[in-house]
C-alpha cells in the first residue's frame, strides 16, 4: 500500500487526463437522473422573471466567447425560453466580444422560433457593437439613438418593440451572461447610475467574486456555471446541456476529491521517508 502511494507521486499526468476523460464521458451514455435542487440565487432570478407581466421586456447580454459556451449557452437558452413562454420580449446583445455575437444570436433566435416569436416585435438581437461602456451608458438615455441597428443592419427606429422601449426605464431587468469582468460595468452603470435591476450568469471560475453583490441586492439572482444552468433548466422543466452535464460533474468531482486525498497521503508519506 505504501509503495502504491509513493509510486503515485511519479505517475505520468497523462494517465490523470485519461481518467478525467473516461469519468466525464461514461456518465453521458448511462441514463441517470441525479436530483437537482435549485440554488436560492437561481430561484430568485426565476421568480423575478416569472412575476413579470406579459409584454414586459428583458435584456440578455451574451458577454462571452466560444470557450465558455458550455457553461453560459445553456443559461441563455433557459432564460430566453422562460421569457418567451411567458410572452416577455427579449433584447439580446453581445457588446463585450465580437466572437460572442453569433452565439447569442443562435440562442435567442432558436428560442424565439420554438415559441413562434416575431423578430422586431417580440425579440431583437443587437449583436456586437464597438464601444462597450459607451453603449451601456448611452442605452440609459436612448436605445435607438445609441445602438442604431440590429445584427443584420436593420434600423431599430421602425421596429415595433422600440415604439414602447426607449431606454432602461422600459426594461424590467438586464441579465448579463459573462465570462469576464463585464458584470461590474453593468452594476456600475445600469444598477448604480440608472437604478435598474441587474442579474448575472457567470462561469464557475468567476462566481465567488459576485456573491458580495448578491448579498447587497445589487444583483437579483446569480447563475453559477453549469450547475446554475441545470438549476434554471430544472425550474422551467426542460433538459438542456446543463442537466445533461450534471452526472459527469458529480463523478468528476468525486474523482478529484479522491485524487486530492491520495496526493496528500503520498506527499506526507514521501516527507516522512525523506526525514
Amino acid at each position: 500500500m505504501k509503495k502504491f502511494f509513493l509510486n503515485i507521486v511519479n505517475l505520468d499526468r497523462r494517465w490523470i487526463f485519461l481518467m478525467v476523460a473516461i469519468v466525464v464521458s461514461v456518465p453521458l451514455f448511462i441514463p441517470s437522473n441525479p436530483p437537482i435542487v435549485p440554488a436560492r440565487p437561481v430561484q430568485e432570478l426565476y421568480d423575478f422573471i416569472d412575476a413579470l407581466p406579459e409584454g414586459s421586456t428583458i435584456m440578455v447580454c451574451f458577454d462571452y466567447s466560444p470557450d465558455s459556451l458550455a457553461e453560459l449557452n445553456p443559461m441563455g437558452r433557459a432564460i430566453c425560453r422562460h421569457a418567451f413562454s411567458k410572452d416577455i420580449n427579449v433584447i439580446g446583445m453581445a457588446f463585450a466580444w465580437p466572437s460572442g455575437s453569433g452565439l447569442g444570436q443562435e440562442v435567442v433566435s432558436s428560442a424565439a422560433k420554438e415559441y413562434d416569436k416575431v423578430q422586431g416585435k417580440d425579440w431583437v438581437y443587437f449583436g456586437y457593437k464597438v464601444g462597450f461602456a459607451q453603449m451601456i451608458i448611452g442605452m440609459g438615455k436612448d436605445i435607438v439613438k445609441t445602438v442604431q441597428a440590429d445584427y443584420r443592419g436593420e434600423s431599430l427606429k421602425n421596429m415595433e418593440l422600440f415604439q414602447e422601449v426607449k431606454n432602461y426605464d422600459d426594461v424590467s431587468i438586464v441579465i448579463v451572461l459573462a465570462a469576464g469582468g463585464t458584470v461590474q460595468t453593468y452594476i456600475y452603470f445600469v444598477n448604480t447610475m440608472y437604478n435598474r435591476p441587474v442579474s448575472a450568469g457567470v462561469t464557475a471560475v468567476m462566481a465567488a467574486d459576485y456573491y458580495p453583490y448578491l448579498q447587497t441586492g445589487q444583483l437579483i439572482g446569480l447563475l453559477n456555471g453549469m450547475k446554475g444552468a441545470a438549476d434554471y433548466e430544472k425550474l422551467i422543466n426542460i433538459k438542456g446541456l446543463g442537466t445533461r452535464g450534471i452526472p459527469s460533474q458529480n463523478w468528476a468531482h468525486i474523482m478529484i476529491i479522491i485524487l486530492i486525498v491520495v496526493g496528500n497521503i503520498a506527499y506526507l508519506l514521501e516527507k516522512k521517508q525523506t526525514k
Binding site: 478525467v20 476523460a21 466525464v24 464521458s25 453521458l28 451514455f29 470557450d67 465558455s68 459556451l69 458550455a70 457553461e71 462561469t203 464557475a204 471560475v205 462566481a207 465567488a208 453559477n224 456555471g225 453549469m226 450547475k227 446541456l241 445533461r244 452535464g245 459527469s248 460533474q249 468528476a252 468531482h253 478529484i256
Partner: peptide, 24 residues
C-alpha cells in the same frame, strides 16, 4: 478553497461541452 472548487467545476464543464459535442 471555494474559488478552487468552482474552478474545477468550470474546467470540467468546458470538457463536458466538448465531449457532448464530439459524442452526441
Amino acid at each position: 478553497g471555494a474559488s478552487f472548487g468552482l474552478t474545477v467545476m468550470g474546467r470540467i464543464s468546458l470538457l463536458i461541452g466538448r465531449i457532448v459535442f464530439l459524442f452526441q
